[in-house]
Amino acid sequence: MKNELDLTKVLHAYETVISKGTPTEHGKMYEGVEAFSDYDGYSVYLRGNGVELKVGFHNTYHLDYDQEHLRDSFLKKVSMLAK
């Protein structure tokens, strides 16, 4: 996997989940991906299947996962949601 994520696609996926998803305790869920933001809206989160992606201020990000195959599967789903 390349070191950089296309954060524009990630943010498009976030918007897709927020606009089409069903409400959860923290945000919205769509196609197995939950999207939510922190209280000030500066950081947005996508999570699902044991993976969490945080996109912060100035397009920084942190990807938290235990297994690479889960990360890869999650990022494919995020890419699909961005279309």
Rank of each mutant, 00 (worst) to 15 (best):
residue 2 K to R: 10
residue 2 K to D: 12
residue 3 N to Y: 08
residue 3 N to I: 11
residue 4 E to S: 12
residue 4 E to D: 13
residue 7 L to V: 02
residue 8 T to W: 01
residue 9 K to E: 11
residue 10 V to G: 11
residue 10 V to D: 04
residue 10 V to R: 04
residue 11 L to F: 05
residue 12 H to K: 15
residue 12 H to F: 08
residue 13 A to I: 12
residue 13 A to T: 11
residue 14 Y to Q: 06
residue 14 Y to N: 07
residue 15 E to I: 01
residue 15 E to Q: 15
residue 15 E to G: 09
residue 16 T to F: 04
residue 16 T to C: 13
residue 17 V to N: 10
residue 17 V to T: 06
residue 18 I to P: 01
residue 18 I to E: 10
residue 18 I to G: 00
residue 19 S to E: 14
residue 19 S to V: 00
residue 19 S to H: 11
residue 19 S to F: 07
residue 20 K to N: 15
residue 20 K to Y: 05
residue 20 K to D: 07
residue 21 G to K: 05
residue 21 G to E: 00
residue 21 G to S: 08
residue 22 T to H: 01
residue 22 T to S: 03
residue 23 P to N: 03
residue 23 P to T: 00
residue 24 T to E: 03
residue 24 T to S: 04
residue 24 T to V: 06
residue 26 H to N: 14
residue 27 G to Y: 11
residue 27 G to N: 10
residue 27 G to P: 07
residue 27 G to A: 07
residue 28 K to T: 01
residue 28 K to A: 10
residue 29 M to E: 14
residue 29 M to C: 00
residue 31 E to A: 15
residue 31 E to M: 14
residue 33 V to S: 06
residue 34 E to F: 06
residue 34 E to H: 10
residue 35 A to T: 09
residue 35 A to C: 11
residue 35 A to H: 02
residue 36 F to S: 14
residue 37 S to P: 00
residue 39 Y to M: 12
residue 39 Y to N: 11
residue 40 D to F: 13
residue 40 D to Y: 10
residue 41 G to K: 05
residue 41 G to L: 06
residue 41 G to E: 08
residue 41 G to M: 05
residue 42 Y to L: 09
residue 42 Y to N: 14
residue 42 Y to Q: 12
residue 43 S to D: 12
residue 44 V to L: 10
residue 45 Y to A: 07
residue 45 Y to M: 10
residue 46 L to Q: 05
residue 46 L to C: 10
residue 46 L to Y: 02
residue 46 L to N: 08
residue 47 R to L: 13
residue 47 R to S: 13
residue 48 G to R: 09
residue 48 G to P: 11
residue 49 N to P: 02
residue 49 N to K: 14
residue 49 N to A: 14
residue 50 G to C: 05
residue 50 G to L: 08
residue 50 G to D: 09
residue 50 G to H: 12
residue 51 V to A: 05
residue 52 E to M: 14
residue 52 E to Q: 14
residue 52 E to W: 04
residue 53 L to K: 03
residue 53 L to S: 09
residue 53 L to A: 08
residue 53 L to V: 11
residue 54 K to E: 15
residue 55 V to F: 06
residue 56 G to L: 07
residue 56 G to H: 06
residue 56 G to W: 08
residue 58 H to Y: 12
residue 58 H to R: 15
residue 58 H to W: 10
residue 58 H to E: 13
residue 59 N to V: 00
residue 61 Y to R: 03
residue 61 Y to P: 03
residue 62 H to Y: 04
residue 63 L to Y: 04
residue 64 D to P: 01
residue 66 D to Q: 09
residue 66 D to G: 11
residue 66 D to M: 07
residue 67 Q to L: 04
residue 67 Q to K: 11
residue 68 E to P: 00
residue 68 E to D: 09
residue 69 H to N: 06
residue 70 L to N: 04
residue 71 R to M: 08
residue 71 R to L: 07
residue 73 S to C: 00
residue 73 S to A: 14
residue 73 S to V: 00
residue 73 S to M: 01
residue 76 K to Y: 01
residue 76 K to H: 09
residue 77 K to M: 05
residue 77 K to L: 11
residue 78 V to P: 05
residue 78 V to I: 15
residue 78 V to C: 11
residue 78 V to F: 02
residue 79 S to Q: 13
residue 79 S to C: 02
residue 80 M to S: 13
residue 81 L to I: 09
residue 82 A to W: 06
residue 82 A to F: 03
residue 82 A to K: 01
residue 82 A to V: 00
residue 83 K to C: 08
